[in-house]
Design a protein around this nucleic acid. Sequence first.
DNA 1: TATGAATGAGATTTCATTCAT
DNA 2: AATGAATGAAATCTCATTCAT
Lengths: 204, 204, 204, 204
Amino acid sequence: MSKIEQNKNHKRTALLNTAFELFISKGLNRTSISDIVERAGVAKGTFYLYFKDKYDIHNRLIARKTAAIFRQAADELESRGDINSVEDKIIFMADFVIDFLNRDKTLLTFISKNLSWGIFKNVLISSKEETDIDFREVFLKLFESSEVAYKNPEVLIFMIIEFVSSTTYSSVLYSEPLGIDELKPYIDTSIRQIIRGQEVSSQL
Amino acid sequence: MSKIEQNKNHKRTALLNTAFELFISKGLNRTSISDIVERAGVAKGTFYLYFKDKYDIHNRLIARKTAAIFRQAADELESRGDINSVEDKIIFMADFVIDFLNRDKTLLTFISKNLSWGIFKNVLISSKEETDIDFREVFLKLFESSEVAYKNPEVLIFMIIEFVSSTTYSSVLYSEPLGIDELKPYIDTSIRQIIRGQEVSSQL
Amino acid sequence: MSKIEQNKNHKRTALLNTAFELFISKGLNRTSISDIVERAGVAKGTFYLYFKDKYDIHNRLIARKTAAIFRQAADELESRGDINSVEDKIIFMADFVIDFLNRDKTLLTFISKNLSWGIFKNVLISSKEETDIDFREVFLKLFESSEVAYKNPEVLIFMIIEFVSSTTYSSVLYSEPLGIDELKPYIDTSIRQIIRGQEVSSQL
Amino acid sequence: MSKIEQNKNHKRTALLNTAFELFISKGLNRTSISDIVERAGVAKGTFYLYFKDKYDIHNRLIARKTAAIFRQAADELESRGDINSVEDKIIFMADFVIDFLNRDKTLLTFISKNLSWGIFKNVLISSKEETDIDFREVFLKLFESSEVAYKNPEVLIFMIIEFVSSTTYSSVLYSEPLGIDELKPYIDTSIRQIIRGQEVSSQL
DNA sequence: TATGAATGAGATTTCATTCAT
DNA sequence: AATGAATGAAATCTCATTCAT
């Protein structure tokens, strides 16, 4: 990478990092591009060399942060060799994500309701800049070598992600209707139930 | 209601209706108070007599619209006398909401991800202006006179609302991962599974 | 006129006057709206209450200033009772305009090439704000009670205005091809020739 | 011309052509140097190797385009051998220019009010890059071998160019006060009248 | 010659809010 | 209760120009 390329990347990263800091501390609406460039130490015009507007950089950050969480969850799962059933694997990942977001509430606020299936569509059409993983692949791999067959793995994953993220959001940030520690057993039970509802054998 | 009262309400209603039109056509961020008052045909200062700011009127509209949907679903359920089990009642209401939002996609866009448990909190603390129903009551009533006992009805309702609204949103608006017609059987199956997972008898 | 109306007019006039000063001293391109409002002593937003943008206020000024010149020329002609033939009346007005612009070169620069037939169209469609005269009327009145008939008075006036303004512009501002004092006899001769070319009797 | 010279000229030409396209489609004010270089496929810095600024390239284009029209008119006149009197020659050239601009209205918009005597001054001081003809020469040649003498040929040409261009502009682009087909007889008559007004013999 | 990333002043425009009427 | 003119801070975005490569 040439010196110029390095410098470009450096500026772009500085903008992303600064924008993230400001978005989580002040929120999207109250963060201005002026705020971002000032704190990032670049000129205002430079922002527009890399991003279309405030919402563009916001979307890219969402993709970035979401991808990072799932990547960690997948890595962690792999490093553990003892989890075999699809059910257990999904529960493991769900719990990982819940714990992660519970620990980093500002991140949860930032990702907000955007931790959803939609993100994968966006991530996949995004120019591989922000993430370099095909998450659809990652998740569907969970089902390989499973003894149990499932009606539609993609739909199953979709439902679980939506379920986990929306319940976690309310619980972690507002303790509604229960705090996350109390709610988690309900979530886990429900995930297992959703999965079992999709077993092909159970339909026989 | 006196003539003055009527006129007062007339302006307030005009503002609410206009704001709704603009929010669904342009979005919250790109709708200004100037836009609203101009189209509503009232003076700028008048806005501040009724609402604190843009977000205030937005919140009240969310509560209003959400309440309207649930009220209709509950009425419909009641008018039918043939649905008895908790499971069937909940499925009925879920399907009602899904169909409703599928028919009125702009409403879905507006309510967006706000059709969630959080809304009940807001509705309950809201000054009864926008809604006049205690929805917690409505839902918990579903469980009365049920032969089956459930671990925590409130948590159960919470989980189902979050599940239905987040999956419907993605499916109806983006057909991801499937269109709503194809997805609905999965949603229904999962709801039943979630409910069954909470049956106290099943835990014995 | 109410106090508010007076104040409105005062602001609008202040903006017009200030804009004119700046346009003639710095030119249209290098005058910013910030410049105008600052010097006019009004808030930036106020500008947008009265004018769409820089070009809007510019057009209105052109109309205003052009109208003022013609109004003066017409008044002057009327106050003199001794000029009777159409030819002499037109020559009188042309000379009046030439002298006027020669004395006020900044005004000539400002009006620039815009002193043309087009302005009448614009003036006439403008909401009578900037001018209150129907100039088409004024000019066509010159031909009333003329002993000589002309093929198409409107076309004749059009040709003369275009001829006078474009030749004057070059001569007064750049002394090209001659200074105005030397050029004027040529202009006058040509005007008379153009007029004579339109006499209906001359066509017999 | 060496290959480097060719390439150099190639970029310069690309810039000129692109600038012309943009000027006629967006206008001078709303065309930026960024627009030009982007569409021309050259780097921003390169622009400054050939032109001082936006106005520089604009002026050169005006000179270029104007020169091209007059060159064609002069060529056409020469190729016809049957037009002898000064009057007929001038009418021929005027009609040629009018027809040309009527056919190419975007060119007329671009040249706008700049088709005037001023252009010759600029053309003559321009570094012979854009045009390689001395138009003053061309026009004055019309008077050579004329049986009739004229008071001041240069002034005569000046007046006719200003007259033709300003009246054509209004007529072709706005049909004011008449469309060009109807107006042309008036223009022609007036030109002949202006010329005759300058005949020295007529002064005797 | 040619490039194009970076600059940053500054232009345009919006808009929530106030307050005299 | 209602108005709407006025405000002016602040946001977005542009763009001519420079300069290291």
